[in-house]
Amino acid sequence: MNLIDKLLSRTVESKPALTDKVLVRVYLDTAGHVRDVKIRKSCGDPERDAQALREIANMRFPSKARGAKTSHNWHDLAYTFS
């Protein structure tokens, strides 16, 4: 590779690799309802990331056991596209 090609290859931005899953952080209340969801690691496609956020926001999770001392918690979750 000549010098010009080496210099040009350094200036070209590479696109992030697309994956089939999004890593998210989900905030649940004691009833198991999603109160907040944030992306921790994108799949590389903003539209698919938004789809994952919408679907997770509508999910319902098991409620906390009665008598638990903490009422709300953050949980890490991997959302895989089918």
Rank of each mutant, 00 (worst) to 15 (best):
Arg66Ala: 12
Arg10Leu: 14
Thr30Pro: 02
Thr19Glu: 04
Val34Gln: 07
Met1Asn: 09
Thr80Leu: 11
Leu28Asn: 08
Leu3Glu: 13
Val12Pro: 01
Met59Ile: 04
Ser71Arg: 13
Ala68Glu: 11
Pro46Gln: 01
Arg60Val: 06
Arg66Thr: 07
Met59Val: 05
Glu47Asn: 02
Lys21Cys: 15
Arg10Ile: 05
Asp20Gln: 15
Arg48Asn: 10
Ala57Tyr: 06
Tyr79Glu: 02
Arg35Ser: 11
Met59Glu: 14
Tyr27Pro: 00
Tyr79Lys: 03
Met1Asp: 05
Trp74Ile: 07
Lys41His: 14
Lys21Phe: 13
Val24Trp: 05
Ile56Phe: 06
Asp76Cys: 14
Ala31Glu: 14
Leu77Tyr: 12
Val22Phe: 09
Asp5His: 13
Glu13Ala: 13
Asp76Val: 10
Asp20Met: 08
Asp76Met: 14
Thr19Met: 08
Gly44His: 03
Pro62Arg: 04
Pro46Gly: 02
Ile56Asn: 05
His72Arg: 14
Pro62His: 03
Arg35Met: 15
Arg60Ile: 08
Ser9Asp: 08
Ala78Phe: 03
Leu28Pro: 08
Ala31Ser: 14
Gly44Cys: 03
Asp29Pro: 04
Asn73Trp: 02
Ala65Thr: 11
Leu7Lys: 12
Asp45Lys: 02
Thr11Val: 07
Thr80Ser: 12
Ala57Val: 01
Thr30Gln: 13
Ile56Gln: 03
Asn73Cys: 01
Arg54Ile: 03
His75Trp: 06
Leu18Trp: 00
Pro16Gln: 08
Arg40Ser: 12
Ser63Gly: 15
Arg40His: 12
Lys6Phe: 12
Asp76Ser: 15
Glu47Arg: 01
Ala50Asp: 13
Met59His: 14
Pro16Trp: 01
Ala78Thr: 13
Ala68Thr: 11
Thr80Trp: 06
Lys6Tyr: 04
Ser63Pro: 15
Phe61Asp: 05
Trp74Phe: 14
Phe81Lys: 11
Ala52Asn: 06
Glu55His: 04
His72Pro: 00
Asn58Pro: 01
Gly67Arg: 02
Thr11Pro: 00
Ser14Asn: 12
Val26Trp: 06
Pro62Ser: 02
Lys41Asn: 07
Arg25Asp: 02
Ala31Trp: 07
Arg10His: 10
Asp36Gly: 03
Tyr79Trp: 09
Asn2Ser: 10
His75Leu: 03
Pro16Thr: 09
Arg40Thr: 14
Asp49Phe: 05
Lys15Leu: 04
Glu55Cys: 01
Gly32Gln: 12
Gly67Ser: 00
Tyr27Asn: 13
Lys41Val: 12
Gly32Arg: 13
Lys64Thr: 11
Ser63Trp: 07
Val22Asp: 01
Ser42Met: 10
Thr30Ser: 12
Ile39Phe: 13
Ser63Phe: 05
Ala52Tyr: 08
Lys41Glu: 15
Gly44Met: 04
Thr70Gln: 08
Val34Asn: 00
Ile56His: 01
Leu77Asp: 00
Val34Ile: 02
Val34Tyr: 04
Arg10Gly: 09
Arg54Asn: 06
Ala31Ile: 01
Arg54Asp: 06
Ala17Pro: 01
Ala50Gln: 14
Phe81Tyr: 14
His33Leu: 07
Arg60Leu: 06
Leu3Asp: 14
Thr19Ser: 15
Arg66Met: 09
Met1Pro: 08
Val12Trp: 02
Thr19Ile: 06
Pro62Leu: 02
Ser14Leu: 13
Leu77Val: 10
Asp76Tyr: 15
Leu8Glu: 10
Val26Asn: 10
Gly44Arg: 06
Gly44Asn: 11
